[in-house]
Each structure stands twice: as structure tokens, then as C-alpha cells.
């Protein structure tokens, strides 16, 4: 095996730029390539691994984060396009170390099993409840239609969201 020359690697790597991202209320300067998705940057540059890659093609919802309060798929969002926006990840939901009522409800109602969908699920539900404090069962199902879960059958997830809604 030959050793790769630094020069070739440079050429292959493409150009990086530094961008400012506001994540969970904090500003970060991060080196990115234009092609990097927000998910790549959150997970690999900022070590915020709460957002998961379940498919990479926008079908499972495990990578859901909030951009300006709205749920988006980080795997289909360009990091360079997220400059100047407020990005909230699951790590920012219990920022002060105190679980949100929704996070607590997910635990108490058995809405978490393997946990892989939980981050995205909680963020989708957080966005729903901030738009609509009293969503109907159908509203909840609609809000979660892009968050797949294979463990729970969704029953206890919906129950958890309804329990928080009832308290509002």
C-alpha cells in the first residue's frame, strides 16, 4: 500500500468554509463543506448525537430537529442553509437539566422503548404543542406521520402527548 500524498487529499477533500450556526441558543463557528447536511454537522462536528440517522433519505423522522420552531429533517437540510436560524435539537429541550413536561410524560407513559425514534418524536410533538395546545387525536397522528416507530405501535406515544395536552 502506498502512502497518500497530502496534496492529492487536499484536492479530493473539497473546500471548507466556516459558518455560524445557532444551536440550542448557542452560537457555534463550524467548518463545513457546502454539501454537509445539518445532521452531519450536528452529529459529527458538534457531537450532538441525539438526532439520529435512521434512513438518510427523509423517510423515518429520526433526525427531526426544530428550525425556527418548525420540525424539519436534518438529513435533508443543508448546513449552509441553516445559517441565521434557531436550531433546536433534543439536547436543547432539557437544557437546564430539567426534563420538559413532554419528556417526562414520554417516560411515565411508557412511550420510550428502544429510544431511537424518541428524539425526533419528542421534537415533532414539541412543535405541535407549541402551535396547538389542544390537538385532537387526529392532529397528533398527523403531526407524527413522519416519525416512524417500530417498538410502541404509537399507542403510548400518543397517550403521552395527550397527557401533556390535558395539563395545558
Amino acid at each position: 500500500m502506498k502512502r497518500g500524498s497530502a496534496k492529492t487529499l487536499e484536492k479530493e477533500k473539497g473546500s471548507e468554509k466556516i459558518i455560524a450556526l445557532t444551536v440550542n441558543g448557542e452560537d457555534h463557528l463550524v467548518p463545513v463543506e457546502d454539501r454537509d447536511t445539518l445532521l452531519d454537522v450536528l452529529r459529527n462536528r458538534l457531537s450532538l448525537t441525539g438526532a439520529k440517522e435512521g434512513c438518510g433519505t427523509g423517510e423515518c423522522g429520526s433526525c427531526t430537529v426544530l428550525v425556527d420552531g418548525k420540525p424539519v429533517l436534518a438529513c435533508l437540510t443543508l448546513a449552509v442553509g441553516a445559517v441565521g436560524k434557531e436550531i433546536t435539537t433534543i439536547e436543547g429541550i432539557a437544557a437546564s437539566g430539567k426534563l420538559s413536561p413532554l419528556q417526562k410524560a414520554f417516560i411515565d407513559h411508557g412511550a420510550v422503548q428502544c429510544g431511537f425514534c424518541s428524539s425526533g418524536m419528542i421534537l415533532s410533538a414539541t412543535a405541535l404543542l407549541s402551535d396547538n395546545a389542544k390537538p385532537s387525536r387526529q392532529d397528533i397522528q398527523k403531526a407524527l406521520e413522519g416519525n416512524l416507530c417500530r417498538c410502541t405501535g404509537y399507542n403510548k406515544i400518543i397517550e403521552a402527548i395527550e397527557s401533556v395536552k390535558d395539563k395545558k
Binding site: 423522522g61 418548525k70 420540525p71 424539519v72 429533517l73 398527523k142 406521520e145 413522519g146
Partner: peptide
Amino acid sequence: AGLVATNQIRTV
């Protein structure tokens, strides 16, 4: 429009 894809996709 509300029938397209999923909530996250409709957002963008």
C-alpha cells in the same frame, strides 16, 4: 397540500 408526504417535509 396537507396530504403531501409528512409534516417535516411540508415544512420545507
